[in-house]
Structures are given as structure tokens and as C-alpha cells.
Design a protein around this nucleic acid. Sequence first.
DNA 1: CGTAATTCGTCAGGCGACTTGACAATACCG
DNA 2: CGGTATTGTCAAGTCGCCTGACGAATTACG
Lengths: 153, 153
Amino acid sequence: MATRAGRQGGQGVNEIPLPALFTQAKDVTLAVLHRRLDEEGFEGIRYSHGAVFRFIDAEGSRLTVLAERSGLSKQALGEVVTELERHGYVERTTDPDDHRAKIIRLTERGTEAQVAAARILGDIERRWAQHLGRDRITGMRRVLEEVVRFERG
Amino acid sequence: MATRAGRQGGQGVNEIPLPALFTQAKDVTLAVLHRRLDEEGFEGIRYSHGAVFRFIDAEGSRLTVLAERSGLSKQALGEVVTELERHGYVERTTDPDDHRAKIIRLTERGTEAQVAAARILGDIERRWAQHLGRDRITGMRRVLEEVVRFERG
DNA sequence: CGTAATTCGTCAGGCGACTTGACAATACCG
DNA sequence: CGGTATTGTCAAGTCGCCTGACGAATTACG
């Protein structure tokens, strides 16, 4: 409904701009992921929660560590953790060895959500592979990774 | 600094999740685009400004039309237009045929910015093609487009 | 025609997702 | 010990978007 082409630059730039293309790909993927998670009973999960699910250690991790790994400020990550805690996906415990720090740990439900998310993302990619070609999808992955590495120097 | 792998799900999900991958690709592309635009003297341009640059007609367009095409609310787009106006990239004129409506038009500087952005994005893609392979880049484009179409289908 | 319904753009307020600054509690080090 | 660094939280602000409400202008209709 909003797809337009042509008419842009001076010469014929008929392609959708790269940033928009990447954004659309992200958005559709995320929409499917969150819908499925919701259907499986994992409610209230949002994009930024991935900062915890992706980077947390099996034994639990400190807030500061998660903030570093995800690139978020510790304040922002603290907020994310509070929200996940409210939904029962993680719990905060004071580190017995360092009473300043708290250890963030996945609850059982949190681990289930983590596993489900990984499985769903795998399903999505497999479905794409079936419909569009296995090599093309794995190729896209590799090219994207290389592009990111290339531009970051 | 934040790249981690392994340890996620239960089985070995060693790949970076798709949404994160797409986001990173978008971010690096946008960083290069905005840096170059800035270097060429086109300052203050942000991601959302693309909603105007991408969808505006050569003769100018109504706010409502741009909002529809871009998928933003007309309020949000109005704000974007105000900002572009302040930077001298567009101008608002009351439609002589319909005094409720206003026509948004690119100024000369605005058109130059539009052309520059298209050129820079083309340069980026060409540079990727040189370093990573022409076919792989155009392949990535096509796969992304098909993926988006597939999931919206 | 006159009036009612619709459309255009803007103002106001709110929310989500971040940021920086400041700070108490705790730990580390010479 | 006393000074310094670290951990996590509170507070406040920004940014980019949203919905609701509205005046002004236009269109539809009885």
C-alpha cells in the first residue's frame, strides 16, 4: 500500500533504498517472531528484550555485562530487566560475592522463551529457504555479515 | 565490542539472529549515508526524512499523500516536513485549488540532497559489489525483496 | 442553495525506548 | 584505614512516533 517506485533522483533510481529494505526485512521478521511467541503463550516480549535473551550466560549475568554486550546503557538495560522480571522471564539476585552487583538469571519460563525464540527464528529461515532457495538464504546471511564487518572496518 | 556467539538456545544456535543482522546492516548503511551527506554540506538529515525524499512527486505532494505513501501518520510527517523546511530542503505552499491543503515541494537544495542521497547509496552498493562480489550484492537485494514480499503476501 | 458530512493539516498530550547526570552502597587498593 | 573505583538505581530529558481533538475549507445532498 505504500510501495512506490520511480520518480526519485534525477536518473532512474528504481530500487528501494537499502536502509528501507533492511528495515522492512527486520520488521516482517520481528512481526512473525512476536506473533508466534505470543501464540505459544510468551507474551509481552519486545525487540529490546533480545538484549537479555541473546547475551545472558547460562549461570546468569550482571547487569553491567549485559549492558556492555548489547551496547545499551546500564540504565536502559535495567529497565528492560525490570520488565522481563515483571513478566516472569528473569529474576534478580544479589551476588553473594559482591553485594553491589546483582545477577540476572533466566527463570525456567525465561529459558523456554529463549528456546522458543531461537526455534521460531530457525523456522522462519527454513521456510524462506524452502520457498526462495536454500543457497540464496544462506548467501544473504553471509553477505549481510560481511557487509557489516566491512563497514565497521 | 558486543559481538557474542554461542551459548544461546539449547541446541547450538551460533548465528546472529535475523532481526539483529538486518538492524546492523541498516545502521552501518545509514551511518555512511549520513556522514557523506554531511560532508557534502547536506546537514541535519535523518532517517525519517527519507519519507519525504523517497515519496515526493516532482511537482510537489500533499502532506496526506506523503503520509500514506510512507506509512507514517500525517502528524508525524508534518513534523518531518517542518524540520526539512527549517533546513531549507522543502517549502510549504497552500494549494490554490483547495485551501485546506498545502503542497510540499522540494527546494533546489532539497533536490540536490535527494540526488546526492541516491548517488551515495549507489556508491555504497557499488563499493560492496567490488569487495564482496557483484552477483552476491544484487542477489542479496533480490532475496531481501522477495522475503519481504513473501511475509507480507 | 443551506446545512451536514467529509477532508486537510495542526495542536496537544502520551508513550516507548533510549540518553546523561547524580548518587548511595559496596568493594578494592596503597 | 581513607581514597578511589564500580554496581545498579533514581531522576529528568530527548527523540520519534502514536491517537485524539479540532478549526478551516471543501464536497455531498435533501
